[in-house]
Computed example of a mutant assay.
Amino acid sequence: MAKKTDNELAESSKPKAKECFAIMPISDVEGYETGHFKRVYEDLITPACIGAGFTPRIASDVKETNLIQLDILKRLLDAPMAICDISTHNPNVLFELGIRQAFDKPTVIIQEKGTKGIFDISSIRYTEYDKRMGYRDVLDGQKAITEALQATANPEGGSVNSIVNLLALAGPAEIPQLDGQQRANAEIDLLRADVQDMKSMLRTLQRNIGGSNSNTNSSSSKSRILAELLANRIARPPLQEYYFPRNVDEKTFKNFLGELAMEHGAENVEVKEGSDGQRIIHAFEAKKE
């Protein structure tokens, strides 16, 4: 076995930087240039995190398990720091921010200049950046976000952006300690939900192959195709979910669906019926050959 060099030993002995989880859109948003929020993450958030002594992480980094929602939830609760971009008023982003607030976890809130306010509480602090993302804009944004991260990590006179402190609540939310039977029941409920999802996938796939040509009409061929398609879907959790209320006009829905199909491939986009008539679009990452 080769011995480590002095430089390698020095690097390995350095303490690892704490994680900062970015809560923000991870795909393109209507009204913005293609790749806009990817640039916000790479050009603003990443350098700012590193400058403040944190390792940046984002939801799209979570690929090690099919239960991507649980991984994101765990990171939301465990990350020492989070940075949340509320520029688009994205429901998923605001939901994840609410989780951080409920558990009184340090969070820096950022938004582009001109974003319409959504908080009625004036004491909430946020840092602004310029949407144009010019050279000087990026440098100024990096500096402002770095300072906000440092101030939030080392607050003076109480936590920054703490709803718990602001409303003088008795304490943050806590995850209850489950005994053996309660934990088992929770795991069974989770498995039941997974089974229901798999049944839904099977029904969708059965409809999709129902119109196949005659050479796939035998039960054995259909079973094989069904198994292959189902395994493919389970191995690839949705890269992103989009929720459309029933009052969204059909033209807007179809235009958005067409854009996703062009980006991911029609075979990697599916539509499901949700509660109250809403439609849910799942966009999957293209399968690598």
Rank of each mutant, 00 (worst) to 15 (best):
L9G: 04
D120G: 10
S220G: 07
N161L: 11
P15Q: 04
Y135R: 11
E273Y: 11
M201V: 11
I26W: 05
A151G: 01
G141S: 13
L226V: 01
A22Y: 07
R279H: 00
T46I: 10
L76N: 01
T5K: 06
G157N: 06
T34Y: 03
Y243P: 00
S275C: 13
L229G: 07
F95D: 05
P176R: 02
L70M: 03
L191P: 01
G157W: 01
L77K: 06
K222W: 07
Q150C: 01
K105T: 12
I58W: 11
G258W: 08
Y129G: 02
I124V: 09
Q150R: 00
E241G: 00
T115H: 11
I83Q: 01
K116L: 03
N232R: 13
R203V: 01
E11Q: 14
G277E: 02
S123C: 00
L70R: 10
R39G: 01
G158K: 04
E96Y: 00
R236V: 00
R100V: 08
S122L: 10
D85Q: 06
G98A: 11
R57Q: 12
I234M: 07
H264S: 14
M133K: 00
N255E: 15
A184H: 12
L97D: 09
I225R: 12
N161F: 14
E250I: 05
F244I: 05
E263P: 00
I58N: 09
Q206T: 00
C49L: 09
K16P: 13
K63L: 03
Y129W: 08
F256E: 15
Y135Q: 11
N185G: 06
T204G: 11
R224M: 06
T127N: 06
D249A: 05
R233Y: 02
E147R: 14
I118K: 03
D78V: 03
I50W: 07
Q111T: 07
D43T: 01
K74G: 10
S221R: 13
G141I: 13
F244P: 00
Y32M: 15
Y41A: 11
Y242D: 00
G274E: 05
V29P: 03
L229N: 12
G141P: 12
G114F: 06
I188F: 02
R203H: 08
S87M: 07
G265V: 10
L191S: 12
T46N: 12
D71R: 03
I118F: 07
G180H: 07
I110E: 04
Q206C: 03
I225W: 05
S200T: 15
T34A: 13
L226S: 03
V160G: 01
A48K: 10
R192G: 09
Q142C: 14
I234K: 04
R207V: 01
M201F: 15
S13V: 04
L73G: 06
S122V: 08
I175G: 04
K16F: 12
I26F: 15
Y242R: 01
K287G: 09
